[in-house]
Amino acid sequence: MFKPGKKIEFKSAKEIPLTPTSLGDMTHNYTGSWRNLRPEIDYDRCIDCMICWKFCPEPAIYIENDRPKIDYYFCKGCGICVEECPVKCIAFEEEGK
């Protein structure tokens, strides 16, 4: 899966890059922590159409063994996949419930 990037703090104007730029990629930024609603795929009803994969803006849905998988490190809980799933097999429940 993802290997997290490095977050770097700058101390002075001499150290900073030309323009605000992440030193590595943005994988240190676990947007999953923003989520208060959690999508869960019911794989018994899922027809593997991958519409959720296509629509996830993050994107936090990847494909593993021909099935959609939600990466909860990055899923923000926006609910777009829930809305778009044609068979309504993605449940949307409060985190920690």
Binding site: F10, I16, T19, P20, T21, S22, L23, G24, D25, M26
Partner: peptide, 13 residues
């Protein structure tokens, strides 16, 4: 060599 450009820049920088 991916980077994010013009990202959130807090008052401290």
């Amino acid at each position: 060599d991916p980077h994010a450009f013009g990202g959130l820049t807090a008052p401290n920088i």
